[in-house]
């Protein structure tokens, strides 16, 4: 039985869905950031699969940029989490409902 590109695409979609559900269900901001990473990885797998099946390296180039953006996003996100927890220990995403300082 041969592995077709569709298998990879379905796996990528499932990873994206699991990440999205986790983002909606979890309230710990750290775990929510991890769920975003899961979603990005599902997309990366999709890009590489299309790159392979269409014979175009551009898909892998896009994955490279996604990696850079993910790194930047994590750095800023974790900076935010550290700043928030320092203000209010044990903070969850639900507590961040006010823009007041």
């Amino acid at each position: 039985m041969e592995v077709s590109a569709n298998w990879y695409l379905v796996l990528g979609a499932l990873l994206f869905i699991i990440g999205g559900v986790g983002l909606l269900v979890r309230r710990n901001p750290l775990v929510m950031l991890m769920c975003v990473e899961l979603m990005l990885n599902g997309i990366n797998l999709t890009f590489v699969t299309f790159s392979r099946s269409l014979g175009d390296i551009a898909g892998q180039t896009v994955v490279f940029f996604v990696l850079v953006v993910a790194a930047a996003e994590v750095v800023v996100g974790l900076g935010l989490v550290v700043a928030l927890v320092r203000r209010q220990p044990g903070v969850t995403a639900d507590d961040l409902n006010a823009l007041k300082g």
Binding site: R52, G55, D56, I57, A58, Q60, T61
Partner: peptide
Amino acid sequence: SQGGVIDNVTPNVDLLAES
């Protein structure tokens, strides 16, 4: 393809670097 064709001869790193 606009970003470089995967021809299964050129190494992956070369293709990616060129792109």
